[in-house]
Design a binder for these strands. Sequence first.
DNA 1: CTTATAACCTACCTGTGTAGTAGGCTAAAG
DNA 2: CTTTAGCCTACTACACAGGTAGGTTATAAG
Lengths: 152, 152
Amino acid sequence: MISNKARYAFRALLAIAEMPDGQPLTSAEIATRHAIPHKFLEQILVDLRNAGLLESRRGKHGGYVMLRPADMITFGEVLRLFEGPLAPLPCLSRQAYRRCEDCVNEQACDIRREFGRAYDAYRAILDNRTLGHALTREEGERQDDKSARRSA
Amino acid sequence: MISNKARYAFRALLAIAEMPDGQPLTSAEIATRHAIPHKFLEQILVDLRNAGLLESRRGKHGGYVMLRPADMITFGEVLRLFEGPLAPLPCLSRQAYRRCEDCVNEQACDIRREFGRAYDAYRAILDNRTLGHALTREEGERQDDKSARRSA
DNA sequence: CTTATAACCTACCTGTGTAGTAGGCTAAAG
DNA sequence: CTTTAGCCTACTACACAGGTAGGTTATAAG
């Protein structure tokens, strides 16, 4: 299960991305519309701003706007911000690789191999599907189509 | 990341499954061979026994033996024992479905739809690959081959 | 029958993470 | 100069992870 924090972040991002021509949306608005605790949401929005996804404007008519187009932000990227590495085993993470202390031969590890398969499949989706996909409600794209806009 | 408990469980199961013609393997043996804290491992083995995967024998020449053949035990089944539901969102779990409290229309939820794709891919592997696959070191099977021995 | 072996059961402990709450400070607009 | 809305720091309650500890019970061999 992903954390509430991450779920709230997705809701907030989608709400902001849906605003007509980059109008700012306030944290209070998002909070009431999506039943998210306001003060908690504020912290999340700050994280998203620090990560370079959002820009904030203070004072009257303030709020948050997207800094990058929605189809340049993958689900994987957002998820990693709040959950850390997504890999099921430390030895499978690219961004935060760590050897299992008790591992004798990583290449021969049966557990690593099987989880590697599963993780590859999981990551292939999360790192290729973007907020833009979600918003345009695109249906079942197949591999190798235009969904790879931001593949590593 | 999966818990140490689950990782230890996989190591133990594979070790027991590898024993020649159902000879019992003791917790102490597994613990020293795989650098797992012994008392902690004992608790894990009891869980595996209660789940019907292992049979235990006490006293001298005691230990644990498999109750089901290794190719009838999927990675997903074992993982769920220790991690609970694998779904990224409660509303995507079949075995432990729960509505997100704040969700207005589940069918229209963008977040649910995208995570649903990712989870489907993840689960397809974990619920079809078995301990038997891991032990025989089968290479890159493609979809729709004999790997679906235990597909739901 | 006794002893060694190995599984079994219950309780406890420490650290870390989750999910917030609380309260005030700061910048921008009118 | 007041309102609005973002910003920053601290704190709390609770749960779970990852063990440790200590003793009890069943089994087999001598």
